[in-house]
Nucleic acid binder design. Structure first.
Length: 301
DNA sequence: GTATTTGTTGTTGC
DNA sequence: TGCAACAACAAATA
């Protein structure tokens, strides 16, 4: 489930509950590969007694900074969630990490249980001790909403991936951090670009539209989904505007909110993809147009 | 029983 | 070499 804005929502949820509190207890459950990168005893030792000082979300990842130069990195994978429970919470089958926190003070009473829940276990838990943030965090690509996300940078990236479908390229975190399956479809729909078009077939106006819609969709998603950031679960069906593709894509017989025409579904780039054929021109149309554009100068000579 | 899933990584082949 | 395609990971749900 979690893409950019939902990840930010979950970060806020833990942060609002436990910022400034100290770790009283750490429970881990080693199933699958979730803790594979973790030295569990060292992890528990470092975290116990540490205070949650700050946190940040980038792309689909979160970083929680604790006192004593302790950094906790989380990736929610396909099905991960962060919840806040009562301190006596008993971990369920898919609760892989539970951090119990308490208000600093002489009695150090436990107040919250921060729960990392992930049934499909594609998530990731990482841990680092040091005065600087770890490389796996600082190496994340500059955000879509940062000044480094420019039209020329996007154009250069599309040129390098010119044979891949644009849908596949939008899912590449090295250039489009935080964008996942539904956001990619939403962006392409807003930009009126067919998801199967080769990335290299987009003309400059289309590249610019793609750039703009990456930013618009990210900004709006953060506002309506992450903005609430409390214990209420993120409900995409409440927050997202009715005018977006998202609200129609899984409805049986769903239609494009802009054209009123039927939506199409297919696997593109190995992922379930939804688009509006009336609005997003097919690869064949696009290449014919490209051919005409390319041919124009030569006819003039 | 089958097919589906909002993510990433490693391998293979061009 | 760099890029593109795909299987694999694991478990719930329809």
């Amino acid at each position: 489930m979690p893409e950019l804005a939902e990840v930010e929502f979950f970060r806020k949820r833990w942060h609002l509950a436990a910022a400034g509190e100290r770790v009283v207890r750490v429970l881990t459950q080693d199933r699958g590969k979730l803790l594979r990168e973790l030295d569990v005893p060292a992890f528990r030792r470092a975290l116990l007694g540490a205070r949650l000082e700050s946190s940040e979300a980038r792309a689909k990842q979160m970083l929680f900074r604790f006192s004593g130069d302790v950094w906790l990195g989380l990736h929610l994978g396909m099905s991960g969630e962060l919840t806040v429970e009562n301190p006596g919470y008993v971990p369920g089958k898919h609760d892989h990490l539970v951090i119990v926190t308490g208000k600093p003070g002489r009695r150090m009473q436990a107040t919250h249980a921060l729960v990392f829940h992930d049934p499909r276990m594609f998530g990731r838990i990482r841990f680092h001790v040091g005065s600087e943030p770890p490389g796996w965090w600082t190496g994340i690509a500059p955000a879509v909403l940062s000044p480094a996300f420019t039209v020329p940078a996007i154009a250069a990236f599309l040129a390098r991936r010119r044979r891949a479908p644009i849908k596949a390229v939008l899912l590449m975190q090295e250039r489009f951090p935080g964008i996942g399956n539904w956001m990619a479809d939403e962006i392409l729909w807003h930009a009126a670009i067919h998801p199967a078009r080769p990335a290299g077939s987009l003309n400059p106006a289309e590249v610019r539209r793609l750039w703009r819609e990456c930013r618009q969709v990210s900004r709006a998603a953060l506002r309506v989904i992450a903005g609430r950031g409390d214990r209420i679960p993120p409900d995409l069906n409440v927050g997202i505007p009715r005018t977006w593709l998202f609200k129609h894509r899984w409805r049986p017989g769903g239609t494009c909110p802009k054209t009123g025409r039927p939506l199409a579904h297919a696997t593109i780039a190995g992922r379930t993809t939804c688009w509006s054929p009336a609005r997003q021109k097919s690869a064949a149309h696009a290449s014919r147009r490209l051919f005409q554009l390319a041919g124009r100068p030569s006819t003039r000579q």
